[in-house]
Amino acid sequence: MTPKYSDMQLDALRELANIGSGNAGTALSQLLGQPVDISVPAASALPLADAVEAVADPEAEATGVVLPIFGDFDATVVLLFLPDDEATLCRLLGMEPHTEDSFSMLGEIGNILGCSYVNALAAMTGLEMEPRPPETVADMAGAIVASVLATRGITGDLALVLDSELFLENEKCSLSFLMLPSHEGIGELLARLGLE
């Protein structure tokens, strides 16, 4: 059975995403020495096919950094960069885009941002969350997101998507920060918040 989520639960998750992405934004700002803005995160429970489309144009070329989280809270963090944004970020860090080195650098950014987000959640909820090393892939956005959903065993009919945008204030550059929790992970999280 796929669990359904109430508005109150989704509000609470949105607030957690807000704090998590605030932390990630601070980390990115320190890393780049640039001010970073964060959009108000969206928290939605969507049918799987809609979840893929809500995140990005499925056929658009994108670079994704995928960071699996294990522990009490099973989830996957995905950072998605569109080509122009990836190029800006690489320029700021003095790297050639779409090279082995730049992929490794983006992976490291994903790691730092993902860990700051997850640490904030862990500190608030007391849940054990263990991020694994990131993987960077350049492909169609839809293929990246759909494969994460399939690989991470999101087998129910709904996927929960926590979606934040991080913007560099001084550059035309943004990236999508997605948290895709498993239903077990979310159950655990809501239980800790007393919102089962």
């Binding site: 995928v66 993987e135 892939v137 293929a143 990246i144 494969s147 690989t151 065993g153």
Partner: peptide
Amino acid sequence: AQMFSFGGDGPSASI
């Protein structure tokens, strides 16, 4: 395709 190698040795690695 196998887009990621994580998922360790579990069945999900080779979905």
